[in-house]
Design a protein around this nucleic acid. Structure first.
Lengths: 190, 190, 190, 190
DNA sequence: CATGAATGAGTTTTCATTCAT
DNA sequence: CATGAATGAAAACTCATTCAT
């Protein structure tokens, strides 16, 4: 099979892209990425046919990392609040641990070139949440608002919280707790 | 800022930039903007020395528009909650009325080329809020969290709400109200 | 109107393209052309949006030059044979005088990127020939073969003749005459 | 030429090259050829050191095929006219049967990278014609023109004829006959 | 020998900016 | 001041060729 396309190299390119995009924006030249990845300019294109495809792949990768972080050790048996808090903590912690990843994720979301396929694939990874939603609906945990609205609130508040933990890592714990408290008070019934 | 040659032309360029950036991203060519503004390619550069300066100026302009929208009819005498709700409504309504402006604002925020000067200037425009903050602190309206955290929560929830009103304009009123309710319940004491 | 797009510069680019393509083939870099034309690399693209468009324009230009050369002093009143000989001489002489042009024309014909529009436009320039054809048909000058077949024979024999005059310019006159004699004997009745 | 590793694979590459060059021009990537030949990209270069060498080899191959087609069943004992007509028919029929080969041949002729060695070798394959020429001279069959001029006329008229048979295969027989008639009337004495 | 990943020079094209008119 | 042609430094991408497996 000759030299097989190495997973290592692919990952190196993705890591380099994260780094470079975080520093210079999505308009950074692909040459900067290949250079950062210690790979020839052309090699980038044997792993990703176009720059757009690279960005899509990067988005998918980061999102899956993020969902892994959120779901690891997920307390499936616990109540809605505990499960949500677990998710929240996973989200915020991952963002604090991977500030470039988080930055790049936001850049890509605002970018406009994501394919429907990748959007669908990443959305699917967050499927566990549907179960939380069902339980929540059954137990009438939340106030009267559409479920997607609640999820969006969680995500946007978590993103906002991450900004704070990124700038003041020493107070990460407080922000994380306060952010979730804000969210929960905002959405929970009574 | 000096005295520009023709305020009209300058505004036409800013409006065109909003339009074009919203459609094609910040990487859209300046030629597309001058063309949309019915102005010569070179003229753009007599009003804005560089593209970066144009983006900075656009950010400042949009932010000021936004703050105007939020402050018009501001009920200075009313309680914290009413004042905040006024601000919230202004924000969400402006975003619904100017979806391109809102989109571009987000793009610029993630862009990375904003000068400190513009950041400071736009922050200043939101000075009225400090007074709300003071009153709130005095009356112990909010739970224990830093004021900037609360502002950030308001902004991110408002942005999120705007997304919903943009996609389902017919339910704008509900979303606007639910968003504020969520925010208020999240931050108000007890 | 500022600096108007200069006809001179356009022509310089076309001339340079003829030169460069003749020497290095159609795959020659556009940079070689702009350099030969003493023009910036980018300028080429203000006159021709793409390389393909340049090649099409070049083809049209050369073909029109050629048809001009063939039609100048055209003896409209004379018999079919004289008119054809005039055309033949114009063709062969132009090819001898512009060997690069002739070479490039052949390259472009074999190239495969000509637009229908240009094909039609250049074909139209050879419209005078239709009249010759009509007269010829009426007078039953030619043997029984389709008119297009006769034209094609003229063109291919003329091209072939040009090759000889190009390589042995000192015998151009003989070749030119022999070529036409061959053609005429080949197509004329009896 | 050395002993190639697998005559089959070499032929597959040449066939694929004919196909691909006919469709996409000589600038088609070698990868397209190896793929069409169901051979690894690198393998192409064990059979042909460079792309130029491949093109030269392809030219030689096609020309030899052509000369084989022309000489098979050659009526060595017959008169000049019969022998020439045989050759003409062979030429035109091969071109009709192998339109891609014919197309590629023309592309290569205009290409500019043929080595002298290949030019000489292919010219040699047409050696039988010298004998026709000698007989013709002895019998004063042709009008007064240089022999090479006559050969060139045959070739260019045959090429032209092939174009017609390719486009209207149902009239191939007529065109073939008319083309030869034209040629013969053009070159034969009286 | 076969394979196909790796390479990096080379290609076309874009675009912010300048400047002659 | 307005104009838009001119500029040339990138940028994304291609591809013949090499070479580790």
């Amino acid at each position: 099979m000759a030299k097989p396309k190495s997973e290592d190299k692919r990952n190196a390119i993705l890591a380099a892209a994260t780094q470079v995009f975080a520093e210079r924006g999505l308009s950074a030249p692909t040459a900067a990425i290949s250079s950062e990845a210690r790979v020839a300019e052309g090699s980038l294109f044997t792993y990703f046919k176009t720059k757009d495809e690279l960005i899509n792949a990067l988005y998918r990768t980061l999102k899956l990392e993020l969902s892994d972080a959120m779901m690891s050790g997920f307390p499936r048996k616990q109540g809605v609040r505990h499960r949500l808090e677990h998710v929240w903590n996973g989200y915020v912690d991952w963002g604090s641990a991977h500030p470039e990843g988080q930055l790049v994720l936001r850049q890509i979301q605002v970018w406009g070139g994501l394919t429907e396929e990748v959007k669908a694939a990443t959305a699917a990874a967050f499927g566990e949440f549907d179960r939380i939603a069902e339980d929540a609906a059954e137990q009438r945990v939340f106030r009267d608002m559409p479920m997607p609205f609640i999820w969006a609130a969680l995500v946007s508040l978590a993103d906002m919280t991450m900004e704070f933990t990124r700038r003041q890592p020493e107070q990460a714990a407080e922000y994380r707790a306060q952010g979730f408290a804000l969210f929960w008070a905002g959405v929970a019934r009574k």
